[in-house]
Nucleic acid binder design. Structure first.
Length: 152
DNA sequence: GCCAACGTTGGC
DNA sequence: GCCAACGTTGGC
């Protein structure tokens, strides 16, 4: 099993929104970055554990855990001309963009902030804390995962 | 709201 | 295939 971190702006979709979805499950649509797409398409497997990260907000940080509920399939929002993430180059026959379904696992008792995560030498290699990182989906090693869990 | 970092686009 | 221009991300 692998570990991941996925970012979302809480104004758009927060961990509470995920909690309140039917079956506490939602598709992770709108990713329009090839590196992130490839990870969802090739590497994310059912049952993989994922940190839910709130970005672009008062206290950016990890707020809880979800799991992969359904492996990569076509991101249908790319087919909808009225959707913010519409991409005319993507078609149902040959979808450019891929998404997975995620299911709520639990919310942390506190936000483990980016500021805090940056303080620990053990997490220096975490893509999230590396300079200029803008990937919205990134792998987390088993060691990093355990270390972060212990911070809660 | 600013701006650094970085990905993408398109002219050549 | 290079690279300047442009758009987006996301912390601050």
């Amino acid at each position: 099993m692998r570990y991941w971190l996925m970012k979302s702006e809480p104004d758009t979709f927060s961990i509470s929104d995920l909690f309140n979805r039917p079956l506490q499950t939602e598709h992770w649509d709108g990713v329009r970055n090839y590196q992130a797409r490839n990870m969802m398409r090739d590497d994310m497997k059912q049952g993989d554990q994922v940190f839910f990260y709130h970005s672009n907000c008062d206290v950016p940080g990890i707020v809880g855990i979800m799991e992969v509920a359904k492996e990569g399939y076509a991101d249908f929002t790319a087919f909808d001309p009225d959707d913010k993430h519409f991409d005319p180059k993507s078609s149902p026959d040959k979808p450019t963009w891929i998404m997975v379904d995620v299911r709520f696992v639990r919310q942390f008792s506190r936000t483990i902030s980016l500021k805090e995560l940056k303080q620990y030498p053990a997490l220096a290699d975490l893509a999230l804390v590396r300079r200029g990182n803008r990937l919205s989906i990134m792998p987390v090693t088993a060691e990093q995962w355990a270390y972060i869990l212990a911070l809660e």
